[in-house]
Amino acid sequence: MSAQEVLDREFLEIRARILKIAASLDRIERSDSPPADPARMALIREGLELLLKDSPGRAKNVQLLFSLPYSPDWPAALGVPVGKKG
């Protein structure tokens, strides 16, 4: 499929999803105190900014943004004997 064909197919869906996010953010803003968790709100803001970057892999980058980090030292940190089997 050409890029134009994909856009034709996806345009209304994208529009609907942007509206959904906009309405969700409005809903949070007009809600009573206490205010929403600033750390999670910052994550959402960062996620939206990722979408505007002109680079491939947006879905992967959003996934990583909402992920905890991985440490290769986890076996020692947890005290789990990993490796050297077999």
Binding site: Q63, L64, F66, S67, L68, P69, Y70, S71, W74
Partner: peptide, 10 residues
Amino acid sequence: LHDKYPGTRM
């Protein structure tokens, strides 16, 4: 969710 990335690597 947020546990998937480190958990999969582990």
